[in-house]
Amino acid sequence: MRKILLVLSVLLSFNVVATNADEKIIIQDIMRQQESAWNEGNLESFMQAYWQSEQLKFVGKNGIKYGWQATLDNYKKTYHDKAAMGELKFDILSVEVQSDSAFVLGKWSLKRKTDNPSGFYTLLWKKIDGKWKIVIDHSS
């Protein structure tokens, strides 16, 4: 009986590891889609990775913005045209998945004609209605 329980436990742990690996790939794919949308100058598509809720939190150098629309409006104000947006690159340093939430740590960089700003980000993702969404973004 103990051997059966041990085998079941090992099999279940492999399933959890495989599932977490699959979820990491999904999140990384969403972030690649964000890069593409940004680099096409499409902020609305870029924002589809974010939770469309007033509870969304975006933390940047100017403090905390609450809500999806406020975050989009802030992006539009700061990155008013393609030249200001430049070319975005995400370097994902780690993705940690825990059931229906994930924590992503990485570096962002923009390549523009006049400069090349960069910084770091931490993202808290939640699985909402079966889809991964960013619920907290802290970018600096």
Rank of each mutant, 00 (worst) to 15 (best):
Q48T: 15
V59E: 08
K61R: 14
E54C: 00
L88A: 05
A84L: 10
A37E: 10
N39W: 05
I64D: 10
A49R: 02
T19P: 00
E23I: 00
L110M: 10
K65H: 11
I92M: 07
Y66F: 14
E44N: 13
E44H: 10
G106L: 05
V104A: 05
Q98S: 11
G106K: 04
I64E: 14
L43S: 03
G106Y: 06
Q69A: 03
E44D: 15
I4H: 11
M47C: 02
G41Y: 05
I27V: 06
L8Y: 11
D129K: 11
F90L: 06
Q28L: 04
A21N: 14
Q69V: 07
M1Y: 11
M85C: 09
K127S: 07
G130Q: 09
M1A: 15
L56Y: 04
L5M: 15
V10R: 02
Y66W: 08
I134K: 05
W51Y: 10
Y75R: 00
A84T: 03
Y50R: 02
V10P: 06
F58S: 05
Q48E: 15
S13P: 01
L124F: 10
D73P: 07
I136N: 15
V104H: 05
S139M: 08
A37P: 10
Y50C: 02
L123P: 11
W132R: 02
N74A: 07
F90V: 00
L11A: 14
L105N: 14
S99M: 06
R2S: 11
M31T: 02
A70T: 07
K133H: 10
G67R: 05
V95M: 03
I25A: 12
Y79N: 00
K57L: 13
A102H: 03
D129I: 00
Q69K: 14
L124P: 04
E40R: 13
S118V: 00
W132E: 04
K3E: 12
K82G: 01
G86V: 01
L12H: 04
W51Q: 04
K127L: 06
I4G: 05
Q28N: 12
K77F: 12
V10A: 12
G86K: 02
T71P: 01
Y50I: 01
Q55E: 15
I30A: 06
S45K: 14
I4Y: 13
A49I: 03
E44Q: 12
I25K: 15
I27K: 04
V97G: 08
K107G: 07
G119S: 09
G119Q: 08
Q55D: 15
F58T: 04
D91V: 11
H80T: 01
T19M: 08
M85F: 13
I25W: 01
D73H: 09
D73A: 13
Q55S: 14
V17Y: 07
Q34R: 07
L5I: 12
L123E: 13
A18T: 02
T78Q: 13
D100S: 08
W38T: 01
N42E: 12
Y66E: 09
M85D: 06
S36E: 09
A49S: 15
Y66C: 08
T78V: 07
W125V: 06
N74M: 08
F14A: 12
F46C: 00
G119K: 05
G86S: 05
Y50M: 02
S99T: 08
W38P: 02
I92G: 06
